[in-house]
Design a protein around this nucleic acid. Structure first.
Lengths: 157, 157
DNA sequence: AAAATTTATATAAGTGCTTATGCAATTGGT
DNA sequence: ACCAATTGCATAAGCACTTATATAAATTTT
């Protein structure tokens, strides 16, 4: 059966995310894909607040809070209150987190190669396709488009 | 920041699914997008078992069981044990479910128009892009691709 | 300076799935 | 006819988020 876009998207997420998770497991790392955006930020700028992480990772603040809490529990992060602003929590890599980085970078590179090999077999690169769709929907939301269409197809009562 | 594929995919799901959900709400329907695969099947073949629904909708059996339970609670479905096989549960639309169908079909048509208008602005139709990616990954999984790549980039110990 | 608003984070509950597992009905082998 | 294996569904727990709301610190208003 031809499935909905949502189902297709979820299917694809599972195919990709599951494989990445497995790759970390194969490399002997106790590590979840959701940690990656945080690790990538902290690989570059040493410290970040929860809000910055959310912003840079493209997720909501609660998601960032939760991910940071998990990573802290795993010993990957150190979290402290900011001196400047008592509300902010300043996040940085622990020694363990730093030690993990080179292994992760190897995994990321392998994953990038995998993504490239996938794209090579597609008529159009996947991430570009998605980025384009998101950009176009930010111009005019899917909701707008549905509402415009539903004026034409409305049932006559 | 350039985000991972997973984040992009989830973002897109939210953009689409959220709008569809809103469209149902605007139409005064108490209805979730996840019901749609079930409704579409039952619009065509009157009855289906839980397993058939899972298969046709492209989701797992537990997901089908859960969706059916929700829809039954909302009064959209009737569920009965099969005569042929006591393990099977035969699902069919209730009167309310049937009454909902024409409204849903109007929504679906509007949604289809919206999807077409989105595709018209893309270099490559989204659902085809996804279908292709899924097909390609079924030929050779992302995990395989990662493993192949990681042999090349492995750190020398 | 006290009160009101805003901001940064945390917590709670929900969503739509998944995997793992349990249970009961059916089927197959002997 | 019986025991074992298989099948169809249900339940439990988990995942990676989300929205809604609470809490506490900082800022602005008065």
């Amino acid at each position: 059966m031809k499935q909905g876009l949502g189902t297709q998207l979820r299917h694809l997420i599972e195919l990709l995310d599951g494989a990445v998770q497995q790759a970390y497991a194969d490399a002997g790392l106790d590590y979840r894909p959701r940690y990656t955006p945080v690790m990538k930020v902290l690989a570059q700028q040493k410290t970040a607040t929860v809000g910055e992480l959310a912003e840079l990772a493209g997720i909501t603040q609660p998601a960032a809070t939760q991910t940071v809490a998990l990573m802290k529990k795993e010993g990957l992060l150190l979290v402290a209150a900011s001196d400047d602003d008592g509300r902010q929590r300043v996040v940085r890599l622990s020694k363990q987190g730093q030690a993990l980085l080179p292994h992760l970078q190897a995994c990321w590179q392998a994953t990038k190669h995998a993504a490239d090999s996938l794209d090579a077999e597609l008529a159009f690169p996947l991430s570009e396709c998605l980025a384009q769709a998101i950009a176009v929907l930010e111009q005019r939301s899917f909701g707008d488009r549905i509402r415009a269409a539903s004026k034409k197809v409305r049932l006559t009562p």
